[in-house]
């Protein structure tokens, strides 16, 4: 394990995610959305979108693989069973629709320790196939000490 100052700035390889209609519908239903833009292709097209629209918080899904890989970075040695999600932020650009190919880059921005707990903050940037930034994320994780 490297020291925490050396850990800041660490990156893992950008991760790709291809947005499917099935994934958008499954996600929308799982979080209780009923807006037809997310569920009904005709409704989405009539409203002027190319395909089913992903709810904003679907960012957690398309950026999820990059975040999962970052947490598993062996240089950090994080005990995933002691991990708690402390906070989350997203900023959104253009809407994501089914068929989009999203690439997410992620970087470890902050590391700190307080009372035996380790705090990590990653920042992610997700772009679609037209190189438009569709969202930026800030992911805060707390790792509790093992008793």
């Amino acid at each position: 394990m490297t020291s925490s100052t050396e850990q800041i700035g660490r990156t893992t390889p950008p991760a790709q995610y291809l947005v499917s209609r099935e994934a958008v519908r499954e996600y929308a239903l799982a979080v209780g959305e009923s807006n037809p833009l997310y569920l009904d292709l005709d409704a989405a097209r009539i409203a002027g979108h190319d395909d089913l629209v992903a709810p904003p918080m679907f960012a957690a899904v398309y950026a999820g693989p990059a975040f999962a890989a970052a947490m598993r970075d062996p240089e950090l040695g994080i005990d995933l069973t002691m991990l708690v999600h402390g906070g989350q932020e997203f900023e959104w650009g253009p809407l994501v629709v089914a068929g989009d190919q999203i690439t997410t880059a992620i970087r470890l921005a902050e590391v700190s320790e307080r009372l035996g707990m380790h705090f990590y903050v990653w920042q992610s940037s997700s772009q679609n196939q037209r190189d438009e930034e569709v969202s930026r994320g800030s992911w805060t994780v707390i790792v509790r000490p093992r008793e």
């Binding site: 918080m57 402390g86 989350q88 932020e89 997203f90």
Partner: peptide, 13 residues
């Protein structure tokens, strides 16, 4: 009025 209206959301759990 729709998903395009939400530009940012930050939460603490």
């Amino acid at each position: 009025g729709g998903p395009e209206k939400l530009k940012r959301l930050a939460v603490t759990f």
